[in-house]
Nucleic acid binder design. Structure first.
Length: 435
DNA sequence: TCTGGGGTCCTAGGACCC
DNA sequence: TCTGGGGTCCTAGGACCC
């Protein structure tokens, strides 16, 4: 733990190693421009799936007051009047360009965390004496090699690197680079932001903070971490420390396995029958199960959710979700489908106008199942047999969620057991008499 | 008529276990 | 027979991110 306790003087401050946040400017709009240079200098917006709402805007479009998430059908005429060029999204293209950008970034630091399709954190330990020059070179190289403009923010913590990046974007004469390694510069940058500009603070949390008398990022930084933890929880406590330059959120360089996968869609029109809802859920199961198999994972839990149209105040509102633990973690579409349809019927309420449905797979575990034979004496206690089996797997394969099937058919018993939770705190199973 | 989709982490409260 | 209290698990939902 790097030392900066509340109220300590500057002398005790240990400055953490610099972290850069590199963020592509207006990424989707920049991608569209790259392949259609005529779009340069003109306002461009990119729309979400089904052309529902605006999800990316060029600087020119932002200057026209077009908001993020603006529903297209409400602003169509305004966009046309200003000559805004509208594009449907093309995620294959964006994914490809993202990979090129990330590969260039990898040559500027061996320690890289790809945070999203258009952002990455880079550890810059060892570059302390030339952070600004390094960042400018990085920026110029990405632009030259990929055509995508990026902004670079550098600070001792991820949260402050986000602040620095935002500052770089907001200052026209920054050249797209902002270094905030000094507390004085950090305070000045914080004073130009609202609470909701911080990474991890949105409307609800901002309201709660204001109700507690914290009305600015600077005030949050200077609040007592213990008090913040008691009032708002551990996440906000970490935020206070991060704003003070104490790293609480590390760099995660290799992407972990997915913890959940979702397939969901809004309906083009309101759905009012169980039959239609089941059809939608079935197609979502197909898609999400396929993606899961591509990642060589199996699911231990299936969850289904349905929503009415939250934007229509005249509709009676209903949002429901339900989940089911599967007897054995599986990637088998038929079994997942069976569970998902059961859940759909459970959630179904007559008389609502459904607008969205989705399927979520949880408790994902590697598909390379551990299988083996297990001797189970016919008179053994079923629960103890399971526990012993789980303990043995725990010892053999480490703290990794696995499931297995083992048999002792010669002795007239067959054991099937599964487990979830990386800590092996629960298990289930069945012990069947085979003959 | 028409308002995205895919994620992560945390927590409240009840059930359950010993 | 004692029926408390701590710990854990589960479900559902909240909040946030890009």
């Amino acid at each position: 733990m790097l030392g900066l306790s509340a109220g300590s003087g500057a002398a005790s401050v240990v400055v953490a190693a610099p972290i850069a946040l590199v963020d592509c400017n207006n990424f989707y709009a920049s991608c569209e421009r790259l392949f259609q240079p005529a779009l340069r200098g003109r306002p461009v917006v990119v729309l979400s799936n089904n052309d529902g709402c605006v999800i990316a805007r060029s600087n020119e479009a932002k200057a026209l007051g077009i908001a993020m998430g603006e529903p297209w059908h409400l602003s169509k005429q305004k966009l046309a009047k200003h000559g805004v060029i509208v594009r449907s999204s093309n995620y294959t293209l964006y994914g490809d360009l993202s990979a090129r950008v990330m590969s260039v970034l990898g040559s500027f630091s061996p320690n890289l965390e790809i945070y999203s399709i258009d952002e990455a954190f880079l550890a810059l330990a060892g570059f302390e004496d030339r952070l600004d020059a390094h960042a400018r070179k990085l920026r110029a190289t990405v632009l030259a090699w990929t055509g995508i403009p990026v902004s670079v923010g550098i600070a001792p913590t991820k949260t402050l690197a986000k602040v620095a990046n935002r500052t770089a974007k907001a200052s026209p004469d920054s050249g797209g680079v902002c270094v905030l390694m000094e507390p004085g510069a950090q305070a000045a940058a914080l004073d130009r932001l609202k609470l909701t500009d911080l990474w991890g603070v949105a409307g609800r949390m901002a309201t709660r903070l204001e109700n507690l008398g914290i009305t600015s990022p600077r005030a949050l930084r200077d609040a007592d971490p213990a008090w913040v933890r008691q009032k708002l929880g551990v996440v906000m406590e970490r935020m206070v420390l991060e704003l003070r330059g104490v790293p609480c959120v590390g760099l995660t360089e290799s992407p972990a396995d997915s913890k959940s996968l979702i397939a969901s869609r809004s309906f083009g029109r309101a759905v009012t029958t169980l039959r239609e809802l089941e059809e939608a859920v079935a197609t979502h199961v197909e898609r999400v199960a396929q993606r899961m198999r591509l990642q060589k994972l199996t699911a231990g839990v299936v969850s289904v959710f349905v929503n009415t149209n939250r934007f229509n105040p005249r509709d009676r509102q209903y949002a429901g979700s339900a989940s089911m633990t599967l007897p054995v973690s599986t990637a088998d579409t038929a079994r997942l489908l069976h569970a998902a349809l059961h859940l759909t019927r459970k959630l179904w309420r007559e008389g609502y106008r459904y607008k969205k449905a989705g399927v979520m797979l949880l408790e994902l575990a590697p598909a390379a199942n551990v299988q083996g034979r297990l001797f189970v004496p016919p008179d053994s206690d079923r629960r103890m047999a399971l526990m012993r089996a789980l303990d043995r797997l725990n010892a053999d394969y480490g703290k990794r969620a696995v499931h297995f099937a083992a048999s002792g058919i010669d002795h007239g018993w067959r054991l099937r057991a599964g487990m979830r939770s990386p800590r092996f705190t629960t298990c289930w199973g069945e012990l069947l008499r085979v003959r």
